[in-house]
Amino acid sequence: MPDLWMPGAEIHDLGDHAPTDQQYPPKAIAHITWDRNATATAPQDWCTFDDLVNYFTTSGAGSAPHLIWDPFSGRVAQLFPADSRSKSVVDSPGGTRTNRAGRVVIQIEAVFFPYCRKDGVVYPRLVDTPCAGWDRLHAWISSWGVPDTWPMGHPTDFTSHRNEQVWETQGGWYAHAHVPENDHTDPGSWPDFTAPTSAPVPSEDDMPLTDADVDRVAQRVVYLLAQASAGQPPNGADDNLTWLINWYHQCSQSSMGAVLDYKLGAAGVASLAQKIDAAPAAVAQALASGITLTVNTNPKGA
């Protein structure tokens, strides 16, 4: 089962969990917080991530999403687990249950409004920001089976396109402007699924995997698969390793780099490296057994 809480997210569990409607396909809903009304001739200062976290965990809890995403720093706060509904779209009595119509309905609020000004730079659209952390956020949502498609079209402006039949029957990504029973027109833009992202220099604990790190992880996976094929339980396999084996079978090669990156991080890679270094003979024997593994050695999948 994928992680209920996004690895690396700042957890602010609101409680009040409630199930989604499992008969519908999995979805994600893209929002922007749109805190202020700015224009090209009158930009306004960006509202901070911490301000929005404070709002959605106090007076704004009644409209809280699963995730609050800072596209400038990459910080993410999570308020509900993936298998619960959240509350960021209007759900009118008697119609489709907009917050629940999917095996998951994961809602993301990007902390952004058009023509916000941060550090002296004005950003007309969300996609004009660094979109830091988008790769990790996207990888986690993909792990819940949300397909990389926009059934009502990739948002490129602030116009509405709503169809309840499409909403109920097709999984994928939806803009708030696409959700039935709602009148909001955000987010106006959203990063591409495969677009590379630029980000601030990460801290040591958040460094992306190097090619050498990925090779070492691959060797460890080969070793564990060799043990499993011989009917031997993996010695000392921790949760990260068990997860990695499962995802080796389930993830496409194009996404493996991002999945390894967001799940393991530098600390996880160091732990794996220690295990590999402690058993070089076993690793060599596993590699010699003929079991092969292809891994995308670009950690960001770019």
Rank of each mutant, 00 (worst) to 15 (best):
A9C: 04
D13K: 04
L14I: 10
D21W: 05
I29G: 00
H31I: 02
A42C: 09
D51G: 07
N54P: 00
G60K: 03
W69M: 04
F72R: 13
G74D: 06
P81G: 04
D83F: 14
S86F: 03
G94L: 00
R103C: 08
C116M: 15
Y123E: 12
P124K: 13
R125S: 11
T129N: 14
P130T: 01
R136N: 12
R136E: 12
L137Y: 01
I141L: 00
W144V: 04
W150I: 07
P151L: 03
N163V: 09
E168M: 13
Q170V: 05
G171S: 04
G172R: 01
A175W: 03
H176P: 02
H178D: 15
E181P: 01
D186G: 15
D186N: 15
P187M: 12
G188Q: 07
S189Y: 12
S189A: 15
P191H: 07
P191S: 06
D192C: 10
T194I: 05
A195T: 12
A195H: 04
P202R: 01
P202I: 00
V214T: 08
Q219A: 11
S229M: 14
S229P: 01
A230C: 02
P233A: 13
G236K: 06
N240E: 07
N240R: 08
L244M: 10
Y262K: 01
Y262S: 01
K263M: 08
L264I: 03
G265Y: 01
V269I: 10
Q274S: 04
D277C: 03
A284G: 07
A286D: 03
A286L: 06
L293N: 12
T294W: 05
T297A: 07
